[in-house]
């Protein structure tokens, strides 16, 4: 247990952080049928902004400001890069997303000079804490609770408010929703705002656990969060969260697999940890082959 616990804890924590990003992917996909490749980079930009803002102001001012700016960036990206392509083929809008991701990465590489930036330590959540035999940061412990609280709030928003109802309607049938008088553009903007907001919070939690942020830091977490969204059934928020936790935990179990085997007296040194990223994709492919719409995905019917 003492060997497994640290890996399990960090798995749950990373899973929670992936979950916050995955919600952004899954909501946008649900409404626009778009894989928003730029979402991982928005998450990275949030991290970099935090670094620069903390250099000139205290963290309790920097953090809300950073969240506001991230939301604005998410909103602006949708207005400038996706909205003009509403009626274009789906491929074009996806390419636009890749282009935005490319632009954000290059912009950050230019501003930071391509160097890794030290992420600021935020009081309390960066403190060390002992849980049984495992020593970890407070952020590891609070992440899952915070995620569950945020997801609960989001589900309430979607199920019990007017804008939530509009979102569900647009996700169900884009054209009919438009005919019913729903303002499509404001619904889509809201989706991007919510997604960016959660990504900004996720970036604080995620980067607090790591030493630095570089311009490529968003790519892998973004990809994994997207995989989590597909794993859970894209378009479904609970699915994305559960998928993210499964992926976070399995990734960390693979990282600590050899240490765990060593407890049982099996000493292997074959470098299983190399596969900590690959296991995410292996899980994805297994689920896609077994249940192509993901864990909680709705069954799509082919129309001839």
């Amino acid at each position: 247990m003492s060997v497994v616990l640290p890996y399990l804890l960090s798995g749950i924590s990373v899973g929670g952080q992936y979950a916050l990003i995955a919600i952004g992917y899954t909501m946008v996909y649900g409404i626009l049928r778009l894989i928003n490749f730029a979402h991982g980079d928005v998450f990275m930009v949030a991290g970099v902004m935090m670094v620069y803002m903390c250099a000139s102001m205290p963290w309790y001012i920097a953090m809300p400001l950073m969240i506001v700016f991230t939301v604005l960036i998410g909103f602006a990206i949708e207005r400038v890069a996706y909205m003009p392509l509403r009626s274009a083929p789906r491929m074009s809008i996806m390419i636009s997303a890749i282009g935005v991701s490319y632009l954000l990465q290059n912009l950050v590489a230019y501003i930071t000079g391509g160097l890794s930036q030290q992420y600021p330590t935020i009081p309390f959540i960066s403190d060390s804490i002992n849980i049984g035999p495992a020593n970890t940061k407070v952020v590891t412990v609070i992440t899952p609770f915070l995620v569950i609280a945020l997801v609960f709030a989001l589900v309430m928003l979607i199920n019990h408010t007017k804008i939530g109802m509009a979102m569900r309607a647009v996700a169900k049938d884009y054209d009919t929703a438009q005919l019913m008088g729903i303002r499509i553009n404001s619904v889509i903007s809201t989706t991007f705002v919510i997604g960016s907001f959660l990504a900004a919070i996720g970036s604080v939690l995620y980067f607090s656990n790591y030493t630095g942020v570089t311009y490529t830091s968003g790519a892998m977490p973004g990809l994994k969060a997207f995989v989590a969204a597909v794993f859970g059934g894209i378009g479904s928020i609970p699915g994305a969260v559960i998928g993210a936790f499964i992926i976070g935990i399995s990734e960390n179990i693979v990282k600590g697999f050899e240490a765990m085997l060593a407890v049982f007296g099996i000493n292997s040194n074959i470098g299983i940890a190399t596969f900590s990223d690959a296991v995410t994709f292996a899980l994805l492919i297994i689920i896609l082959v077994v249940k192509p719409t993901g864990l909680f995905g709705e069954k799509a019917t082919d129309k001839v």
């Binding site: 996909y29 894989i35 190399t274 596969f275 690959a278 995410t280 896609l288």
Partner: peptide, 24 residues
């Protein structure tokens, strides 16, 4: 698989291949 699912699955395989080739 179709469209986006095919895209993400092939992307996943590319990443797995990369991990295998880096395996000590």
């Amino acid at each position: 698989l179709k469209s986006d699912y095919l895209a993400i699955a092939t992307l996943g395989f590319a990443e797995i291949i990369r991990a295998i080739f880096q395996w000590q």
